[in-house]
Design a protein around this nucleic acid. Sequence first.
DNA 1: CTGAAAGCGCTAACAA
DNA 2: TTGTTAGCGCTTTCAG
Lengths: 338, 338
Amino acid sequence: MTKTSITLPDIAAAAGVSKSTVSLALQDSPKIKPETKRKVLKAAKQLGYVYNRAAANLRRRSSEIIGMVINDLTNPFFAELAVALERSFTDSGYVVMMANTSEDMQQQEKVVRTFAEHGAAGIVICPVFGTSYEQLTSHTMKGLPIVSVMRPIEGNACDFISPDNIAGSQAVTAHLLAQSFTRLAFLGGLDNTSVYESRLAGFKTAVSKAGIAMEACEILPCPPTREAAAKLIMERAKQGPLPEAIVCYSDVVAFGVSFGLDRSGFKAGKDVAVTGFDDIQGCNVFSPSLTSVHIYTDQLAKLASESLINRLKDPERPISNQTVMPKVMIRESSILNK
Amino acid sequence: MTKTSITLPDIAAAAGVSKSTVSLALQDSPKIKPETKRKVLKAAKQLGYVYNRAAANLRRRSSEIIGMVINDLTNPFFAELAVALERSFTDSGYVVMMANTSEDMQQQEKVVRTFAEHGAAGIVICPVFGTSYEQLTSHTMKGLPIVSVMRPIEGNACDFISPDNIAGSQAVTAHLLAQSFTRLAFLGGLDNTSVYESRLAGFKTAVSKAGIAMEACEILPCPPTREAAAKLIMERAKQGPLPEAIVCYSDVVAFGVSFGLDRSGFKAGKDVAVTGFDDIQGCNVFSPSLTSVHIYTDQLAKLASESLINRLKDPERPISNQTVMPKVMIRESSILNK
DNA sequence: CTGAAAGCGCTAACAA
DNA sequence: TTGTTAGCGCTTTCAG
């Protein structure tokens, strides 16, 4: 909190005008004569005045604070998302409070409440799976505008921005299929979560469109972490011939798979084609570079901030779901015989 | 901002007590009879009351808001640092506002001021190189507690937390030297920046301790980005035999070098030993895994939050500089002949 | 143990 | 165009 307690009255006295004139002048109101404004601004600068937004917000009953709550910031993809969101909101003149929930529903409820207590105008959230608007707002912060990104809020109560997971997954699977692979696997992700279902659905669609029986394919869910994926693929490697190509739930999972393959004596992009999803920064570091589905995180963030800001302006506007079409980025990991 | 305007008077009325009793009860003051407290709490819950911290802070002239300003959030290392800082402060009951400066001094001054206006109790910052306390506070937010991480604020005006860059760099260089390499290079980083100077100094110390003439070594500074490093090493590769081992300024730089080597027909960890610095998450993804200097980001973040919180409690305490000893993590990229 | 009253720094009618 | 007057929702002496 600002230590120096220079306040409106102080600068009013210095400029020889009234408190409210100063207030208006600081807001650059057209009601104030230019000369007076200059006088006020000069006095303010001279006294080292720091505007107290908290006080202004209290009086005005509004704020330019956005609460950003993210399910897992240690996951590089979500960290990238958070950064993009911060940028979007900051660019629009908001200031963002951030919090991690570690996929913990309790924690999530707590931080949303904390943000509400701090006067957040709205919340942008990548929620824990299974979150509903009611539990988020504890039935008590009704009307707190919330937009969710990547993962929906149950009951369609909130604006929602996400990549087209089905299309992306289908496209990357098709890219693999185009190489005449017939034994594919979909690996990673948690059963019964929306993102998993969508990405798996895209995979299945592509497979059946290619006239391949799903029985020829393996579905291997696991927590979407590097460690879990590595462990899973290492165990799988012991149990017989690997699939020719593995469509991974996410890049993090793909990194884990790649690592696990390595430890099992196989090489991604050589013995097995591997693809990721999200196209995070790491994808083209080292070799083989990882084929992935680019989901335009910046664009998602931009849509999210626009959505939320629009809702702030008009709370009654209909709820909207927006989807961004992803793009397959073909790199080394998915092309064998290199 | 909370839409529902349930306020202290409302719950006072509902509970049949006064405003101030409610306030005290909500703070769990020992002055209030347990029974009254219960009554108040129940009424509050029932009415869906949301505590207004902004108002409380205004009155109390304090806040539990920390402003976190980071030079480059698109750099995965700083993103990891930001996440660790958020966690530390949140764990201590603070809420953090975050902002990126993109290494832009103007932007940096702006966000610090914005945070001050929002009533931040203190600032944790990884500053743009060359930042001084005076410019940060525009001579006007005097006394705003600031702690810097990784990079110092000029003039030693602020608490400062950093890894021991010299020791880390020296250690990782020594690890290379132990393999009897004689032609080493230090690559990446910007001249005249404190981190660069330290890491380079560690390199030089190790080299001369090994009895090798610095003339046998190359110093190749460049912006600490993947792209710049890749470009630099590719150009260097055209100009004759590469050094046997390259100590990189950071992991990001090392990734760039590894990539550039690949494009030039060489292989990190096979033709050239490569090491990074920071030990970010990506280091052991793919192969070769990257030897790096682990700098205990979590610990740095913890010290930073403790420092700042202590200063909040006692603004007069002497300024402290804390250093964390790093640890070399040996992986594949630095061991040839595998 | 509880209530009354003043005020944090600002904005917003309403007057002048 | 500017000043006066009330508060925003909360905490905090000070009385009772």
